[in-house]
Protein backbone atom coordinates (compact mmCIF):
# COMPACT_ATOMS: atom_id res chain seq x y z
CA UNK A 1 0.00 0.00 0.00
CA UNK A 2 1.37 3.37 -0.93
CA UNK A 3 2.61 5.60 1.86
CA UNK A 4 0.68 8.55 0.41
CA UNK A 5 -2.57 6.63 0.65
CA UNK A 6 -1.89 5.59 4.28
CA UNK A 7 -1.55 9.25 5.24
CA UNK A 8 -4.59 10.20 3.18
CA UNK A 9 -6.68 7.53 4.91
CA UNK A 10 -5.70 8.79 8.35
CA UNK A 11 -6.44 12.41 7.50
CA UNK A 12 -9.80 11.54 5.96
CA UNK A 13 -10.76 9.48 9.01
CA UNK A 14 -9.77 12.42 11.17
CA UNK A 15 -11.98 14.77 9.09
CA UNK A 16 -14.97 12.53 9.66
CA UNK A 17 -14.21 11.78 13.32
CA UNK A 18 -13.84 15.44 14.17
CA UNK A 19 -17.09 16.40 12.38
CA UNK A 20 -15.17 18.87 10.18
CA UNK A 21 -16.25 16.84 7.16
CA UNK A 22 -19.94 16.89 8.06
CA UNK A 23 -19.99 20.58 8.93
CA UNK A 24 -18.16 21.43 5.73
CA UNK A 25 -20.44 19.32 3.51
CA UNK A 26 -23.65 20.53 5.14
CA UNK A 27 -22.62 24.18 4.98
CA UNK A 28 -21.47 23.86 1.38
CA UNK A 29 -24.66 22.13 0.27
CA UNK A 30 -26.85 24.51 2.25
CA UNK A 31 -25.19 27.62 0.91
CA UNK A 32 -24.88 26.55 -2.70
CA UNK A 33 -28.34 24.97 -2.63
CA UNK A 34 -29.99 28.08 -1.23
CA UNK A 35 -28.49 30.36 -3.84
CA UNK A 36 -28.99 27.91 -6.69
CA UNK A 37 -32.66 27.27 -5.96
CA UNK A 38 -34.13 29.89 -3.64
CA UNK A 39 -32.47 33.30 -3.48
CA UNK A 40 -31.10 35.98 -5.77
CA UNK A 41 -30.56 35.13 -9.40
CA UNK A 42 -31.46 31.49 -8.92
CA UNK A 43 -32.22 28.89 -11.58
CA UNK A 44 -35.89 29.95 -11.83
CA UNK A 45 -35.01 33.63 -12.05
CA UNK A 46 -32.65 33.25 -14.99
CA UNK A 47 -35.03 30.66 -16.42
CA UNK A 48 -32.36 28.57 -18.13
CA UNK A 49 -31.57 24.91 -17.61
CA UNK A 50 -27.87 25.27 -16.85
CA UNK A 51 -25.65 25.09 -13.80
CA UNK A 52 -23.90 28.43 -14.15
CA UNK A 53 -25.63 29.67 -11.02
CA UNK A 54 -24.34 26.77 -8.96
CA UNK A 55 -20.83 27.07 -10.38
CA UNK A 56 -20.52 30.76 -9.59
CA UNK A 57 -21.76 30.16 -6.01
CA UNK A 58 -19.36 27.23 -5.56
CA UNK A 59 -16.55 29.38 -6.97
CA UNK A 60 -16.95 31.65 -3.95
CA UNK A 61 -17.95 29.20 -1.23
CA UNK A 62 -15.02 26.88 -1.96
CA UNK A 63 -12.70 29.86 -1.76
CA UNK A 64 -13.68 30.24 1.91
CA UNK A 65 -14.23 26.58 2.83
CA UNK A 66 -10.96 25.20 1.55
CA UNK A 67 -8.68 27.28 3.82
CA UNK A 68 -10.89 26.09 6.69
CA UNK A 69 -10.09 22.46 5.92
CA UNK A 70 -6.44 22.96 5.04
CA UNK A 71 -5.54 25.23 7.96
CA UNK A 72 -5.01 22.45 10.48
CA UNK A 73 -3.24 19.99 8.19
CA UNK A 74 0.36 20.87 9.00
CA UNK A 75 0.00 23.74 11.50
CA UNK A 76 -1.62 21.45 14.06
CA UNK A 77 1.13 18.87 13.69
CA UNK A 78 3.74 21.59 14.08
CA UNK A 79 2.09 22.72 17.28
CA UNK A 80 1.48 19.30 18.83
CA UNK A 81 4.92 18.03 17.80
CA UNK A 82 3.39 15.06 15.99
CA UNK A 83 5.18 16.24 12.86
CA UNK A 84 8.37 14.87 14.43
CA UNK A 85 6.71 11.52 14.88
CA UNK A 86 5.44 11.51 11.31
CA UNK A 87 8.71 12.59 9.71
CA UNK A 88 10.72 9.97 11.61
CA UNK A 89 8.51 7.21 10.19
CA UNK A 90 9.61 5.67 6.92
CA UNK A 91 8.06 8.38 4.69
CA UNK A 92 9.45 11.27 2.69
CA UNK A 93 8.39 14.88 3.11
CA UNK A 94 6.79 14.78 -0.30
CA UNK A 95 4.68 11.73 0.60
CA UNK A 96 3.46 13.57 3.70
CA UNK A 97 2.41 16.67 1.75
CA UNK A 98 0.80 14.71 -1.09
CA UNK A 99 -1.05 12.51 1.39
CA UNK A 100 -2.52 15.53 3.09
CA UNK A 101 -3.26 17.19 -0.26
CA UNK A 102 -5.12 14.13 -1.45
CA UNK A 103 -7.16 13.91 1.76
CA UNK A 104 -8.38 17.50 1.35
CA UNK A 105 -9.11 16.95 -2.33
CA UNK A 106 -11.13 13.82 -1.58
CA UNK A 107 -13.19 15.69 0.99
CA UNK A 108 -13.97 18.40 -1.57
CA UNK A 109 -14.79 15.71 -4.15
CA UNK A 110 -17.24 14.13 -1.71
CA UNK A 111 -18.88 17.53 -1.17
CA UNK A 112 -19.08 18.11 -4.92
CA UNK A 113 -20.46 14.63 -5.50
CA UNK A 114 -23.30 15.50 -3.13
CA UNK A 115 -24.40 18.22 -5.56
CA UNK A 116 -25.04 15.65 -8.28
CA UNK A 117 -28.82 15.74 -7.58
CA UNK A 118 -28.77 19.38 -8.65
CA UNK A 119 -27.65 18.24 -12.08
CA UNK A 120 -30.34 15.57 -12.28
CA UNK A 121 -33.05 18.03 -11.27
CA UNK A 122 -31.96 20.75 -13.67
CA UNK A 123 -31.61 18.30 -16.52
CA UNK A 124 -35.31 17.41 -15.98
CA UNK A 125 -36.27 21.07 -16.36
CA UNK A 126 -34.91 21.55 -19.87
CA UNK A 127 -32.10 20.83 -22.28
CA UNK A 128 -28.86 21.01 -20.34
CA UNK A 129 -25.44 21.41 -21.94
CA UNK A 130 -23.61 18.38 -20.59
CA UNK A 131 -20.26 19.64 -21.86
CA UNK A 132 -20.59 22.81 -19.80
CA UNK A 133 -21.53 20.77 -16.73
CA UNK A 134 -18.53 18.47 -17.08
CA UNK A 135 -16.25 21.45 -17.77
CA UNK A 136 -17.67 23.30 -14.79
CA UNK A 137 -17.15 20.41 -12.40
CA UNK A 138 -13.65 19.86 -13.75
CA UNK A 139 -13.01 23.57 -13.25
CA UNK A 140 -14.25 23.41 -9.65
CA UNK A 141 -12.04 20.40 -8.94
CA UNK A 142 -8.95 22.08 -10.38
CA UNK A 143 -9.78 25.33 -8.60
CA UNK A 144 -10.17 23.43 -5.32
CA UNK A 145 -6.91 21.59 -5.85
CA UNK A 146 -5.16 24.92 -6.43
CA UNK A 147 -6.56 26.43 -3.25
CA UNK A 148 -5.73 23.27 -1.32
CA UNK A 149 -2.09 23.52 -2.35
CA UNK A 150 -2.06 27.21 -1.36
CA UNK A 151 -3.77 26.33 1.94
CA UNK A 152 -1.27 23.57 2.67
CA UNK A 153 1.58 25.96 2.11
CA UNK A 154 -0.04 28.50 4.46
CA UNK A 155 -0.48 25.74 7.02
CA UNK A 156 3.12 24.60 6.72
CA UNK A 157 4.65 27.95 7.63
CA UNK A 158 3.00 28.35 11.04
CA UNK A 159 1.93 26.58 14.21
CA UNK A 160 -1.24 28.60 14.46
CA UNK A 161 -4.35 27.48 12.60
CA UNK A 162 -5.91 30.94 12.50
CA UNK A 163 -2.76 32.35 10.95
CA UNK A 164 -2.80 29.49 8.45
CA UNK A 165 -6.43 30.24 7.56
CA UNK A 166 -5.87 33.96 7.12
CA UNK A 167 -2.64 33.47 5.18
CA UNK A 168 -4.41 31.09 2.80
CA UNK A 169 -7.23 33.60 2.26
CA UNK A 170 -4.69 36.37 1.79
CA UNK A 171 -2.72 34.50 -0.88
CA UNK A 172 -5.90 33.16 -2.44
CA UNK A 173 -7.64 36.51 -2.74
CA UNK A 174 -5.03 37.69 -5.24
CA UNK A 175 -5.76 34.81 -7.57
CA UNK A 176 -9.47 34.83 -6.89
CA UNK A 177 -10.21 38.47 -7.24
CA UNK A 178 -7.40 41.04 -7.14
CA UNK A 179 -5.55 39.98 -10.31
CA UNK A 180 -8.85 40.07 -12.23
CA UNK A 181 -9.65 43.59 -11.05
CA UNK A 182 -6.14 44.82 -11.80
CA UNK A 183 -6.15 43.30 -15.29
CA UNK A 184 -9.31 45.17 -16.25
CA UNK A 185 -7.67 48.51 -15.44
CA UNK A 186 -4.22 47.83 -16.92
CA UNK A 187 -3.52 47.58 -20.64
CA UNK A 188 -0.87 45.81 -22.67
CA UNK A 189 1.46 43.08 -21.42
CA UNK A 190 0.64 43.46 -17.72
CA UNK A 191 -3.06 43.43 -18.43
CA UNK A 192 -2.58 40.13 -20.24
CA UNK A 193 -0.38 38.78 -17.45
CA UNK A 194 -2.79 39.60 -14.65
CA UNK A 195 -5.66 38.31 -16.70
CA UNK A 196 -3.82 35.00 -17.10
CA UNK A 197 -3.03 34.85 -13.38
CA UNK A 198 -6.66 35.34 -12.40
CA UNK A 199 -8.51 32.15 -11.35
CA UNK A 200 -11.82 33.40 -12.68
CA UNK A 201 -10.52 33.78 -16.26
CA UNK A 202 -9.69 30.09 -16.37
CA UNK A 203 -12.63 28.91 -14.36
CA UNK A 204 -15.18 30.80 -16.45
CA UNK A 205 -13.90 29.44 -19.70
CA UNK A 206 -14.00 25.91 -18.31
CA UNK A 207 -17.49 26.28 -16.91
CA UNK A 208 -18.67 27.20 -20.41
CA UNK A 209 -17.40 23.80 -21.48
CA UNK A 210 -14.15 24.91 -23.09
CA UNK A 211 -11.19 22.98 -21.75
CA UNK A 212 -8.03 24.62 -23.02
CA UNK A 213 -4.48 23.44 -22.33
CA UNK A 214 -3.69 27.01 -21.19
CA UNK A 215 -6.18 26.58 -18.33
CA UNK A 216 -4.89 23.14 -17.38
CA UNK A 217 -1.30 24.37 -17.34
CA UNK A 218 -2.36 27.28 -15.13
CA UNK A 219 -4.08 25.09 -12.53
CA UNK A 220 -1.42 22.39 -12.49
CA UNK A 221 1.31 25.00 -12.11
CA UNK A 222 -0.37 26.49 -9.03
CA UNK A 223 -0.87 23.02 -7.54
CA UNK A 224 2.75 22.06 -8.18
CA UNK A 225 4.14 25.30 -6.77
CA UNK A 226 1.94 25.17 -3.65
CA UNK A 227 2.86 21.56 -2.89
CA UNK A 228 6.52 22.20 -3.58
CA UNK A 229 6.62 25.24 -1.30
CA UNK A 230 4.91 23.22 1.46
CA UNK A 231 7.65 20.62 1.15
CA UNK A 232 10.28 23.32 1.33
CA UNK A 233 8.67 24.78 4.45
CA UNK A 234 8.50 21.30 5.98
CA UNK A 235 12.16 20.59 5.30
CA UNK A 236 13.18 23.95 6.72
CA UNK A 237 14.13 22.12 9.94
CA UNK A 238 17.13 20.70 8.08
CA UNK A 239 18.95 23.98 7.70
CA UNK A 240 17.76 26.21 10.51
CA UNK A 241 16.44 26.05 14.03
Amino acid sequence: MSKVWIITKRELASFFDSLIAYVMIVLFLGLSGAFTWLFGSDVFFINQANMQVFFSIAFWSLFFFIPAITMRMIAEENKAGTIELLITKAVTDSQIVWGKFLACLLLVLIALACTFPYYITISQLGNIDDGAVIGGYLGLILLSASYISIGLFASSITQNQIVAFLAAIFIGVFFHFVFGVVSSSVRGFFGELFNYLSMSTHFESMSRGVVDSRDLIYFFSIIAIGVLLSQVALSKRNWQS
Binding site: R10, A13, S14, D17, S18, A80, G81, T82, E84, L85, T88, K89, A90, V91, T92
Partner: peptide, 21 residues
Protein backbone atom coordinates in the same frame (compact mmCIF):
# COMPACT_ATOMS: atom_id res chain seq x y z
CA UNK B 1 17.10 8.06 5.32
CA UNK B 2 14.06 5.88 4.42
CA UNK B 3 15.99 2.68 5.11
CA UNK B 4 17.30 4.07 8.39
CA UNK B 5 13.91 5.29 9.59
CA UNK B 6 12.52 1.79 9.03
CA UNK B 7 15.07 0.29 11.38
CA UNK B 8 14.55 2.81 14.16
CA UNK B 9 11.75 3.07 16.66
CA UNK B 10 11.57 6.56 18.11
CA UNK B 11 9.81 8.01 21.11
CA UNK B 12 10.23 11.79 20.86
CA UNK B 13 10.49 14.09 23.84
CA UNK B 14 7.10 14.93 25.38
CA UNK B 15 5.62 11.97 23.52
CA UNK B 16 3.50 13.66 20.84
CA UNK B 17 0.56 11.51 19.67
CA UNK B 18 -2.49 11.91 17.47
CA UNK B 19 -4.85 12.48 20.36
CA UNK B 20 -8.03 12.09 18.35
CA UNK B 21 -7.26 8.51 17.33
Amino acid sequence: PEAIKKKIGYLPENNPLYLDM
